[in-house]
């Protein structure tokens, strides 16, 4: 697996980090490895044979065909280079694959971790305007396959065999070459070199040179990769009612004014109705003295209150740390 692609150690800081968060996904950032199918490996092998093992004839690159068994396959690939008898003209290269690849040996014969576990392979954060979202990429362990390819070079010129043989031996002089399949590098080993030429004296002679290549690859299905988004931080809008809860209440038609511990000693409220106050009760309620004003005027213990009158009660406490209650008796 190409761990460099994950770029786990490249930490961005400062403005770059802010941009990462702000534009993390919209700029196409994608740290997940691309899926790999058999088709991708086949396609890259054809490309490898075509470009890395290219041979020129008459200034033109000799064509490479990846054939499957359906007869349509040969027609669709070769219709441009056939003669009047619809026969494909040498020189060309054929790529065929062992149809049923065996389990791979890339892990040295070790098997995969049992179970369909998903493993974290990387995370990054993004900001969608309201939430900071942690995007986590997870994937299953890929499974390995050994894929055998047969490369056949069909030619009627010995000199071209030299050229291709030179390319092949140069490509595999250090044991293995590599396929780059969707960013994943897979080793190719030259397994065998053979000759399937027709050398019959009385028949048409044609060179068919065979190179067997083994790709130690692995398959990642698209459904093996999942992306999870989790909110890691949210901007919460909280509306707070700044009004204090009313400390004036009614009980048995009396108005009770409460002074919590350590609170201010002046309480102001508006009358919600018409009342006739006939006395003030303060006994045993931590109040040494009190003063009552209605609409700014000092009143005695017997007074009238009208609706919306502004009442101000001022007390002097015995102990500031104790609760105090003043009872206006109606």
């Amino acid at each position: 697996m190409n761990l460099d692609k994950l770029d786990l150690n490249n930490k961005v800081e400062g403005v770059g980090r802010v941009n990462d968060i702000m534009f993390g996904l919209v700029d196409g950032k994608n740290i997940a490895p691309k899926a790999i199918s058999y088709k991708d490996i086949d396609s890259e092998m054809e490309n490898f044979v075509s470009t890395k093992l290219n041979v020129l004839f008459g200034g033109q690159q000799i064509k490479t065909f990846f054939f499957a068994q359906q007869r349509m396959s040969e027609f669709t690939k070769t219709w441009e280079m056939v003669d009047e008898n619809k026969n494909i003209l040498p020189n060309f290269k054929i790529v065929t694959r062992e149809n049923n690849p065996k389990p791979g040996t890339m892990q040295g014969g070790f098997m995969n971790i049992p179970g369909d576990l998903y493993f974290n392979i990387g995370t990054f954060d993004k900001w969608d305007g309201e939430n900071k979202i942690t995007v986590t990429y997870k994937m299953k362990q890929p499974y390995c396959v050994d894929i055998l390819y047969n490369i056949k070079f069909v030619t009627n010129r010995f000199n071209l065999i030299n050229e291709l043989n030179n390319k092949v031996n140069a490509a595999f002089k250090s044991k293995q070459a590599y396929l780059n399949v969707n960013g994943h590098f897979m080793p190719i080993v030259l397994e065998d070199v053979g000759d399937e030429s027709d050398y019959d004296l009385d028949q048409r002679k044609i060179f068919v040179q065979n190179f067997q290549l083994k790709v130690s690859g692995y398959i990642i299905n698209e459904e093996d990769i999942i992306v999870e988004e989790n909110i890691s931080r949210a901007l919460l809008g909280i509306e707070i009612d700044t009004k204090r809860p009313s400390l004036v209440s009614k009980k048995n038609n009396n108005l009770i004014v409460e002074f919590p511990r350590k609170s201010r000693t002046v309480m102001t409220f508006k009358s919600d109705n018409d009342y006739h106050i006939i006395g003030v009760e303060t006994s045993g309620s931590n109040i040494l003295s009190y003063m009552i004003m209605v609409n700014g005027e000092l009143v005695s213990n017997d007074f009238n209150l009208q609706k919306y009158d502004r009442v101000q009660v001022k007390i002097e406490r015995e102990n500031r740390n104790e609760f105090s209650t003043l009872n206006l008796i109606t």
Binding site: F67, E74, T78, K86, I88, T96
Partner: peptide
Amino acid sequence: SYDKTQNLARYLQIGN
């Protein structure tokens, strides 16, 4: 066919 493993790259060879 040129490929004798899977009989691919078929052609009709003109008789002698």
